[in-house]
Design a protein around this nucleic acid. Structure first.
Lengths: 346, 346
DNA sequence: AAGCAAACTGTGAGCGCTAACAACTTTTCA
DNA sequence: TGAAAAGTTGTTAGCGCTCACAGTTTGCTT
């Protein structure tokens, strides 16, 4: 399959070979060529070989357009991604794409910074016209997947971080238990006043992390307090870190690493040391997390696995193997230096 | 164009309308419908209106497959992205995609973590089969764009960060002058021993930044010393920060922010304060840069502009408007707190 | 009012492929 | 040995669209 040093389109443009060219060269009908190409049975081995040789000789490659026209299939997936270049989503997108490549599927990507329903619908409509066989939604915004699900497509749909929904498969890490583990770690260090710096309200992941935090606190008869609702960005973490009321607190669980970084920076500016005065735990384990000061204790998500799981889930839906167990990984706690033993709350 | 609450594919599957359905309803020939759809002249206004109404009523949308089959055009672009989820490239990919959406073009993305020539060729071949009308390469690896360029395609090609090459348009920020500005800033602060923590050797951007650093130093009769060649990651910055010889140095220009972060962390561990003992300047201005300790002085690249410029360059090539001036923006210096006045070198 | 150009509109072919079925071989088994 | 069964191959008809060109109408001259 791998051809070296080929003039893909030479000046004389010898017109890409068609199925008929191959048929003529092999001395068979075009239909037989089609059978060979599609690996259908009932072709005599000797004929098959002859056809394969002709294919190789002519460098024949079937036209996806012609194929799509008649089969209404395209071996193509549509991917909708909303939000900016945050580490988590963009990693997931990247690995989803890589997995698709490995599986020899093509993917159309529609990136949009907002998650305006009509933009999303527009993107889906464009995908539909292209005969995509499935749609994946990787969105930080809760509504996005529901918008697509609400279109009641006949093609499978898989979404990252969305509420379970009829006809909508969701894949992702277990944010809830990841968050509980984070909080449990804090409790084990002796902390009792553990606040939360939440992620955006329209993010299911953010809400799951908050719920995990709240439940773990509840299970230990501890009070819950949210010090702010950020937008995942370091600057939002910084903003809340500057302004929030820290009384009674010895630890803060931030909804992601980037906000942790902003938060720590603001805390330092207020004369508070981390973790001596305040323990901070993040979420995601971005590459920088190990190298900021102090190195961040966090909960690692494996975005590569998530992206690949999304693809394989979608592909199995496309192949009709519906309702298999949906993959869900458990994020793991990474202990570094931003958490420490609790001191008496100030 | 925006339809609300539509059953995109109802259970009875009333077969997506074709051009003939529209023609029948409007009482014209399919060819006239085609003219209206493609906005060709010589259609009586009243006829045009009638056809447009029929289109709207039937929710007719032309089939890209059929169109591509006959025109051999697809209004589709192939995007090749190599490397992992680093901030710069993934942002560029994202904004490229967003710009394409705005222009109503579809884009196939082929993401690969490596930049193996045969993978790249494979991706290009797949794109060609899909009748893409142009290819964009966003790669951290130098060879990538050249591999594609070497295939001598007849469709336009645009690449980020690549050496100028026949038939290859490159778009990007002016890494060289950005780097010179960074170094000049250091010199203005009184630094004389200014080392460089370089990016990977196979990256043109990395080499341009190094060249800028070297030339600015040379222009001021200062000696140049590279303390390491990293891979853009914080951990590589950290590694070199731990081991390098710092004698005679009061400042280090790191090839990107992430390596700066790792570097600073290692320096701190060696008992060196930034910027008191050593000034550090990075490149890119990632969102975290302002919130690490100390906030990073860096050179900001506008990835959104780069991504959008890549798209518009590619589109204008596709439309035959060749050889327009290639956009190149100048990254801007962002002064924060990781650089300070030079002390006497140790 | 005839005549001609310009403006419109329609017809037929064919892009490259697969689906459906017809036709021809070979094998199998009574 | 012959007929049915199984295996193999070919034929035809589209998929939905655009292109090239033919045909029809309309507007403008003289």
């Amino acid at each position: 399959m791998s051809l070296d040093k080929v003039d893909y389109v030479t000046e004389e443009a010898p017109r890409q070979a068609t199925i008929f060219d191959v048929a003529r060269l092999a001395g068979v009908s075009h239909q037989t060529v089609s059978r060979v190409v599609n690996d259908l049975p009932n072709v005599r081995p000797s004929t098959r070989v002859r056809v394969e040789e002709a294919i190789k000789k002519l460098r024949y490659v079937p036209s996806p357009a012609a194929r799509a026209l008649v089969t209404r299939r395209s071996r193509t997936i549509g991917l909708i991604a909303t939000g900016g270049p945050e580490y988590g989503p963009s990693s997931t997108v990247l690995y989803f794409n890589a997995a698709a490549r490995d599986a020899r599927w093509s993917v159309f990507t529609a990136n949009m910074t907002d998650s305006d329903p009509s933009s999303i619908r527009g993107a889906v409509e464009a995908f539909l016209r292209q005969n995509v066989e499935g749609i994946a939604v990787i969105s930080g915004h809760e509504g996005s997947a529901d918008v697509v699900a609400g279109m009641e497509l006949t093609i499978p749909l898989v979404a990252l971080e969305a509420t379970p929904h009829a006809g909508l498969a969701t894949v992702g890490a277990d944010q809830y238990n990841g968050a509980r583990n984070a909080v449990r770690h804090l409790i084990e260090l002796g902390h009792r006043g553990i606040a939360h710096l939440a992620g955006p309200a329209d993010s299911v992941d953010a809400r799951e992390r908050e719920r995990g935090w709240r439940d773990e606190l509840g299970a230990n008869d501890l009070a819950a307090r949210v010090i702010g609702i950020g937008d995942w960005s370091p600057s939002s973490g910084h903003r809340f870190g500057e302004a929030c009321d820290l009384s009674g607190l010895t630890a803060i669980f931030a909804a992601n690493d980037q906000m942790s970084i902003g938060l720590i920076h603001a805390l330092n500016a207020r004369g508070l040391a981390v973790p001596a005065d305040m323990s901070i735990i993040g979420f995601d384990d971005i590459p920088e997390a190990a190298y900021v000061s102090p190195p961040l204790t966090t909960v690692r998500q494996d975005f590569e696995t998530i992206g690949r799981d999304m693809l394989s889930t979608l592909l199995s839906r496309i192949n009709g193997e519906s309702a298999t167990e949906l993959p869900q990984s458990l994020p793991t706690l990474i202990e570094r230096a931003s958490t420490g033993l609790a001191r008496r709350a100030s």
